[in-house]
Design a protein around this nucleic acid. Structure first.
Lengths: 161, 161
DNA sequence: CCAATATATCTCAGCGCTAAGACATCCGTC
DNA sequence: GACGGATGTCTTAGCGCTGAGATATATTGG
C-alpha cells in the first residue's frame, strides 16, 4: 500500500487493500485445506462435489447443473469431476426420470462413507485457520461477507457453507 | 449451513460459514477482475507480475524469487509468466550482477505504459466490487483480514495490495 | 580451501479448468 | 403439432499451474 501511494499518488488504491488480502487469504486457506484432503485421497474439487451431495440430504442426489452452480465452475469441469468420482466408485450417474436431458448424480455407499470420514478433520482444519479471530470478530466477518456477497448478487449468500 | 446442521448435527460446521463465503467471494472477484484485464490484453497472472514490478518503484526491477513470493505461486509458474511477458516485450530478464544464480526482471517502457494504463480501471473495478459495504464495514474488514493473515504467518499482511 | 548444504532458476510431464461448441431434449407460441 | 429458442450435459483443444527434479551458483563449517 505504501508502495502504491508513493508510485501512483493520483490513484486511491484503498480497494486493493481489501481485495489483495482477500486473495492472499484464499490462497493460504486453499493450501492448508489441501493437506487434509490429501490424507483422504481427495482433492478440493472432489471434496467439493462429495460434500455438496452429502449436505443435500437423503437421497443424496443432485444434477450436474446443481453441482456446477454450487462449485461455481463450468459444466465441462463438473463433467470431468464426475468422471473421476464415478471411476473411483464414489458417485453414480443415471438418467433423470423427469428430464431426458438431465442426469442424476448420487453418492455411493463408499462416497458417503468417505466424505463422512473426511468431514470432521476438514472442519477442524477450518477452525484452526480461524483461530486467530475472537468470536466477535468472526461473526462480524461472516456478516460482512454475507453483505458483500448479497450486494454482488450471489444467491447462495444465505445458505452456502 | 442449515443443511449441514440437519445432516451432521454432531459437527460444529460454523467455520464453513466463513471459509465457504470467503472462497465464493474470491471467485466472484476473480471473475469480475478478469473482464477488465481482458480489455488490456492481460490476464490475472500477467497483471500481477507487472503490477508488482510497477509498485516496487524505480528502477522497476525484481528477482523471480521476489515475484514468486508476492504471487504465492511456484517458481515454475513465475518462469512461465516471465516467458510470456518477455515474449511480448513487457519485461526483460538479465543476469544479476551480484548473484550468478539470479536474474533481474525489469519492466520495459511498454510494460510500464501498459500497467499504468490498466491500473485506474482495475482499481475502479475493485472499488465497485466493494460498493456494497459502507466505510466502517470496509475498514473493519481490512482489519480483520490483517489480523487473520498475521495469525497465519503471512509476512506481507502489512504491505500487500 | 573443500565438501556439504542451501539457494535461484529453469524444465517438463501431468492435471484440472475454461471456452467454444455439439447434441439431445424441453418449452412456449402460433 | 411444428418451429425456434432455451436448457442440460458432454466433448475437446488449449492453457496455466503444480510437483519433481536438473543445473548452476552461493554459503557455511571444518
Amino acid at each position: 500500500m505504501r508502495q502504491w501511494a508513493a508510485e501512483r499518488p493520483d490513484l486511491d488504491v484503498s480497494p486493493m487493500e481489501v481485495i489483495g488480502r482477500l486473495k492472499r487469504l484464499s490462497r493460504l486457506v486453499d493450501a492448508e485445506l489441501k493437506r487434509n484432503f490429501a490424507a483422504y485421497d481427495l482433492d478440493a474439487a472432489s471434496f467439493d462435489v462429495l460434500a455438496t451431495l452429502r449436505r443435500s440430504g437423503a437421497p443424496y442426489r443432485l444434477t450436474p447443473t446443481a453441482l456446477m452452480q454450487s462449485a461455481m465452475v463450468t459444466s465441462g469441469a463438473i463433467t470431468q469431476r464426475l468422471d473421476r468420482l464415478e471411476a473411483r466408485g464414489l458417485v453414480t450417474r443415471s438418467l433423470s426420470e423427469v428430464d431426458g436431458r438431465s442426469r442424476e448424480v448420487a453418492l455411493t455407499g463408499a462416497g458417503h462413507a468417505l466424505i463422512d470420514r473426511a468431514l470432521p478433520a476438514h472442519v477442524d482444519t477450518e477452525r484452526g485457520l480461524l483461530a486467530g479471530l475472537d468470536p466477535a470478530e468472526t461473526s462480524a466477518l461472516v456478516e460482512t461477507l454475507r453483505t458483500l456477497l448479497a450486494s454482488l448478487g450471489d444467491s447462495a449468500a444465505d445458505s452456502e457453507g
